[in-house]
């Protein structure tokens, strides 16, 4: 019994780590599409790990099966929402920051 609880705590700490890196990503990335990368992948994995941890902490009851159902739903639905948002951003002409433009920016900044 104590082994499953320690395993659940490890999963929850892993989920917290991925939430932290996804938040830093959505703040610091330079462009809309890169920010979608951060939140689409990092948040989905973090929620999945958290829900596995919660389900292990509860044991084998009806509640833990419902939590696993949320986990499966999240893994299928969150990437679809990210895909729809990126398609809409592509159609409406959001600026894509290319690698050469970013190097040009850095060169101009350092020359000043």
């Amino acid at each position: 019994m104590i082994v499953t609880k320690i395993l659940a705590v490890i999963f929850m700490l892993g989920g917290l780590f991925f939430f932290l890196t996804a938040t830093i990503g959505i703040l610091r990335f330079p462009d809309f599409f890169t920010r979608l990368h951060a939140t689409g992948k990092g948040d989905t994995l973090a929620v999945f790990l958290f829900l596995i941890g919660f389900s292990l902490y509860e044991g084998f009851t009806l509640t833990s099966l419902k939590i696993l159902f949320i986990a499966v739903f999240m893994v299928l639905a969150q990437p679809t929402a990210t895909h729809a948002l990126s398609r809409a951003g592509m159609r409406c002409g959001e600026t894509i920051l290319l690698h050469e433009e970013k190097k040009e920016e850095k060169k101009n900044d350092s020359s000043i």
Partner: peptide, 21 residues
Amino acid sequence: GIFNRAAAVSALGNKTLIILL
């Protein structure tokens, strides 16, 4: 722009889900 705000609201919803649990 509105796209960054929409992506951030989706991220906010994920964190709210875990805080509820």
